[in-house]
Design a protein around this nucleic acid. Structure first.
Lengths: 359, 359
DNA sequence: CTGTTAGCGCATTCAC
DNA sequence: GTGAATGCGCTAACAG
């Protein structure tokens, strides 16, 4: 293994391992049948073979048929790379996210993938680990081989984003840069509903368990909560959770209870889940003693008690962004589009009327 | 919008939308600075520019320096596609998974991505939606532009897998096809520990809430549970859950309780979470009245009560598979490797000694 | 309808 | 150490 990185994979067991090559039959890879070989075998010009695959309508049906048959038997498959060099179009788009492991993104990626597939585009996936430098690097690396890029929750500065947009078609998700096509998930609408819901239930003091300070969404949510509360005779207190995570939510519980609030809205579902655990530790029952609402609805339906949360629209965001990008690519036009997806409250089992509590 | 798919995105609001082109400064894309332009500007031959980027050691340091400087100011960036056509290597690998939205895969993808990045490879992501035909299609589409592919939990037949492997380097995860390099996550070791753990706690009747019938992992886990139980004086009953999901777990609860068992091991964490919810509905307290163990450890740490589960090793699997593939690519050799990653029980809060229960 | 001719941008022999 | 030619596999005018 010559000190390869695989060696570092501690704790594995190699059951079978044969070094050396495969038997003759397996090592032989179809080393790329070219268009010329097909042309020769079919007795036509190379361009006809090309046409048979790209514009069959330009050829007589019989010719197409014959070429296809020969291609089939020869095992010819068009070389995507060569085609791309010639046409300048490779049918690939890039999708760059900050953190695949965050449950918010996979559905978005999936939806984007599906949409790309509908137009026969392949997806390059990039994960920036929340690192702007890595993001820059990925965009550069993708640049040569994708026709456009969807940047999700970019951590780049507006300047860098503009710079990249000057190089190739770009669509943004959850980032509002003027002049660059973007789709925004407006969680404020859902957050507002959350506050109204809690107010209706009789809660008069609500705490917002905040998320990462540099997050666009966090800012948006905090603002929305404040503005919603101001018209409703309810007090808002903010408790920071440092990171958007389970543990920080759990750690925030003491501070939350200290405020005397009877309900909380958390920056996201992970944080809410942490709060839930912390509350249980302190024998505070949800929703009987305390109401809790999450955001992004990524865990709500699969945990117990089922978490009331704000919908995320990430599926639509992924779909619309990719669709928008492909449309730009195909029409070769750029449009200053700004889609805003509204969210709403998804009611489940973690909220309850205040009156229910022993007075 | 001419009836584009974006129109179908119900429930969105377009706040700003200007059709037409960008102002001059924005529509002008750097239409690809070529090696020739750099050569001219630097007063050298095209080949020298090429060398400056690929084999700087073949040029005098001053020349390299001058070329690089010119390239920089011109904004030249090597065209990946053209290079690929010329060299036959494009530095891309494909990663195909059945379902990105399943929380089991994202960490695996992330790890693979990270590993690829270390060797400057880009990743094509494919999502098959659990559909073999889609998987076949993706492999074909990728074939022209990746050097190798990692197939995760492939739903393809052994024959199809072999056929693809004859076309390009392939590495399998959780699929045991002889002759194809593969990395397997052996959940049986962890499941065995789970049974032993429950036995030590005094449980004498355990039910296995099974997963999808056609799943390699499900088969493996069920077998492991049986064999572990046989040496420990504990009874195993199997309750099917049809799908590996929250709702099917929730629906299985009646059947589970009907067996008279005092503990359960679920096919995966999602199912376990469903069981947890179903149990709570029936006022059965976990872990006081009933012990529960999940599999894959994807939710355990972020839910309440924290779920005892079997580790998944998906991160290592992704890392090792990609590393293996890249090694194959670079050494141009194929090896019949078979890595088996052992799992173990991760104890949290959903199991408890039977004796604790009121007798 | 189909064949001919040029490149796409780069890496890579060869010479010098 | 550097320049000049050739080709990777394919598409796209341009003729016929």
């Amino acid at each position: 293994m010559s000190g390869s990185s695989i060696d570092e994979a501690a704790n594995f067991v190699v059951i079978g391992f044969k070094s050396g090559k495969y038997p003759e039959t397996m090592i032989k890879r179809a080393k790329g049948v070219t268009i010329s070989q097909v042309a020769d075998a079919a007795g036509v010009a190379r361009s006809s073979v090309s046409r048979a695959f790209t514009r069959p309508d330009m050829l007589s049906p019989e010719t197409v048929d014959r070429i296809m048959k020969v291609a089939e038997t020869l095992g010819y498959v068009p070389n995507h790379t060569a085609r791309a060099l010639s046409t300048g179009r490779h049918g690939n788009i890039g999708l760059i996210v900050p953190d695949i492991a965050n449950p918010f993104f996979p559905p978005l990626i999936q939806a984007g993938q599906l949409e790309a597939d509908r137009s026969d585009f392949c997806i390059f996936l990039g994960n920036t680990e929340e690192n702007p430098k890595q993001e820059d690097k990925l965009v550069g690396r993708f640049a040569g081989q994708v026709e456009g890029i969807v940047l999700v929750s970019s951590r780049l500065s507006d300047e860098r984003i503009r710079a990249h947009a000057a190089q190739l078609p770009l669509v943004l998700i959850n980032r509002d840069v003027d002049g660059i096509p973007r789709v925004l998930i407006d969680s404020s609408s859902g957050v507002r509903q959350a506050v109204e819901h809690l107010a209706e239930l009789g809660h008069r003091k609500i705490v917002y368990v905040s998320g990462p300070a540099n997050s666009w969404s966090n800012k948006q949510r905090r603002t929305a909560i404040r503005s919603a509360a101001s018209g409703l005779k309810v007090d808002i207190e903010t408790v920071p959770a440092v990171l958007a995570s389970y543990t920080s939510g759990r750690n925030a519980v003491s501070a939350i209870l200290a405020t005397g609030a009877t309900a909380a809205v958390a920056f996201d579902d992970l944080t809410a889940q942490g709060v839930l655990a912390g509350l249980a530790e302190k024998k505070v029952s949800v929703p009987r003693d305390f109401s809790l609402i999450g955001c992004d609805d990524v865990l709500g339906a699969v945990t117990y008690p089922a978490l009331t949360s704000v919908s995320n629209r990430s599926v639509e965001a992924g779909r619309v962004a990719v669709s928008l990008l492909i449309e730009m690519l195909q029409s070769n036009g750029i449009r200053d589009a700004r889609y805003v997806l509204q969210t709403h409250l998804v009611m489940r089992e973690t909220t309850m009327a205040l009156g229910y509590r022993a007075p």
